[in-house]
Design a protein around this nucleic acid. Structure first.
Length: 490
RNA sequence: GGCUCUAUCGUCUAACGGUUAGGACGCCAGGUUUUCAUCCUGGUAAUCGGGGUUCGAUUCCCCGUAGAGUCACCA
């Protein structure tokens, strides 16, 4: 197999974040779509770091980005950690020679020139244009004589042709923009680093990228990119514009400053990667069937860039919770135990009757009542799991069934149940149920089950008595029933 | 403001120009062995407005309206 994406015609996609902090859900969705498309076509997925603005760089971002993608299982074929690639580093700041190479090529072709003005002078032009209510275009101030570029001034593109550009977008169809969008944009900044506009085009070319997935904020600048493709003589890749993910109030696109969460926070709250991936895939994409739950393999098989949405979407957080619950409850017992244990606070684990055995028997009861691990922590901190690992204290009056005249009526029923349970098989909640059921039918279901349940849990709302008895085991079950009886006797 | 893009239930979305406009989440109701949770069943709810084109528009075109994006030595 030839692994060099530049030498084959197979699909190559990339995710190209700048290391300016954490990854939010929008960025992750872009990465996911690029990943799915590459995997679907047995192609290559590249993680490229766009660190050409040193002033905005946040230390640790590259590691953080990688950690985020790894959590979600979006493994890359080439990335900042690759020792060797067919095209050099995946970190732009280590590719400066490449950008310079193409910059000089453009200068030789007469398609790039040094900007003779200071930033302040350009600002004056800009203000003039604003005052006259016309758009500012640098090319209106293009110098007539060009000096040699010594690298200390910005290098600008000399737009090869002023024209209306039309291009095809896989998602949006035919797009176009007028010549007012074209200008002599900066290719290399005065600090020697290339601009995004220049660097990403060269990298995509060198890396053989066939499909560019990115959010719709780049539509407006696409004509500028196209003029650079033309100037360099590069073939255009396929443009795949992803719909924006909007903030809850729908007033603005989701961004880091708008309360967008670090994707790893979702991990910390107990969202499972499978749920997150499934959910994000369905935000802005849909296979056109009624299937809702997809494994990563399902997604790779089904994903189709032709079915990406055009319109922006809000995050349906309720559905994410629901989805997480689905995946959580499909976990094996062992995995559930690990999951629950991770979120159970120390106070709960140090309760007098706490044991791994009892926790293991409680697992289903706990997980079917929550959607995320964070809820386990919250519920535990509120003391609502205490009855599982500690004899409950409660007001005796709640033992009384609603049809009973007095609490004394409960006493003989609990005594009967106690007698039966002395001999009962505690190997599952089902066997306990079988033992007690005839009595429940004789006495009345609520008449027996309500007080029994309260005796075991000390709560008006709790799992059913069979489940509770199974969790607590015979000794503790019998002890709690006896305690209840004693309380009634006073 | 100029340019560009977008528009189906509250939300995510489905529907070769012909469907009782479908599904999921949420919500409501009922049911499954007492309460809670789970689960099951049912219900609620949408084509932004106005013009065209067409025998027939959610679908195609135009004009509004609303929202988003963009106009940097940021990406």
């Amino acid at each position: 197999m030839n692994n060099n994406p530049t030498e084959t015609n197979k699909v190559v996609t990339r995710f190209a974040p700048s290391p300016t902090g954490f990854m939010h859900i929008g960025g992750v969705r872009t990465a996911l779509f690029a990943y799915l498309h590459a995997r679907k076509h047995n192609g290559t997925f590249i993680l490229r770091i766009e660190d050409t603005d040193k002033s905005r760089e946040v230390e640790g971002s590259i590691e953080h980005i990688q950690e985020s993608l790894r959590w979600l299982g979006l493994e890359w074929d080439y990335g900042p950690d690759s020792a060797e690639t067919p095209f050099g580093s995946c970190i732009q700041s280590k590719r400066l020679d490449t950008y310079l190479h193409y910059a000089h090529q453009l200068i030789e072709k007469g398609l790039a020139y040094p900007d003779p003005y200071t930033p302040e002078e350009v600002e004056v032009f800009r203000n003039q244009a604003a005052a006259e209510k016309r758009p500012f275009l640098f090319r209106d101030h293009r110098p007539t004589t060009t000096e040699t570029w010594d690298g200390t001034k910005p290098l600008r593109l000399k737009v090869p042709e002023i024209k209306r550009y039309t291009w095809n977008d896989v998602v949006r169809g035919e797009l176009s923009a007028g010549e007012e969008m074209l200008d002599d944009i900066i290719l290399i900044k005065s600090d020697g680093y290339p601009t995004y506009n220049f660097a990403h085009i060269i990298d995509d070319h060198e890396m053989g990228v066939t499909h560019i997935m990115r959010a719709d904020e780049f539509i407006a600048s696409t004509p500028k990119f196209l003029s650079i493709y033309d100037a360099l003589g590069f073939k255009r890749p396929e443009f795949v514009t992803l719909p924006p993910i909007l903030r809850d109030d729908k007033t603005k696109k989701l961004g880091k400053r708008d309360g967008a969460k670090d994707i790893l926070e979702y991990k910390a709250e107990g969202y499972l990667r499978e749920a997150m991936v499934n959910f994000l895939a369905l935000t802005g994409w849909n296979p056109g069937t009624e299937q809702e739950l997809f494994t990563k393999e399902d997604l790779i098989a089904t994903f189709d860039i032709a079915k990406i949405q055009r319109a922006g979407a809000l995050l349906n957080e309720d559905k994410l919770l629901w989805m997480n619950k689905q995946y959580l409850n499909n976990l094996s017992q062992e995995d559930k135990l690990v999951y629950v244990t991770n979120f159970l606070p120390e106070e709960t684990r140090s309760l007098p009757q706490f044991s791994t055995d009892r926790l293991t028997r409680s697992i289903t009861t706990i997980t079917e009542r929550i959607s995320t691990g964070k809820e386990i922590r919250d519920v535990a901190e509120a003391g609502e799991y205490d009855f599982l690992f500690n004899s409950p204290s409660y007001d005796t009056s709640i033992l009384k069934w609603k049809n009973d005249e007095s609490i004394q009526a409960v006493l003989p029923r609990l005594a009967e149940a106690h007698k039966i349970l002395l001999e009962a098989d505690f190997s599952s909640s089902e066997t306990i149920k079988e033992a007690l059921w005839p009595l429940a039918e004789t006495l009345g279901k609520g008449e027996l089950l309500w007080p029994l349940r309260v005796a075991l849990s000390g709560q008006e709302r709790s799992p059913d008595p069979f489940t509770l008895a199974y969790i607590l085991g015979p000794d503790e079950t019998l002890a709690r029933i006896k305690t209840a009886c004693d309380k009634i006797k006073g």
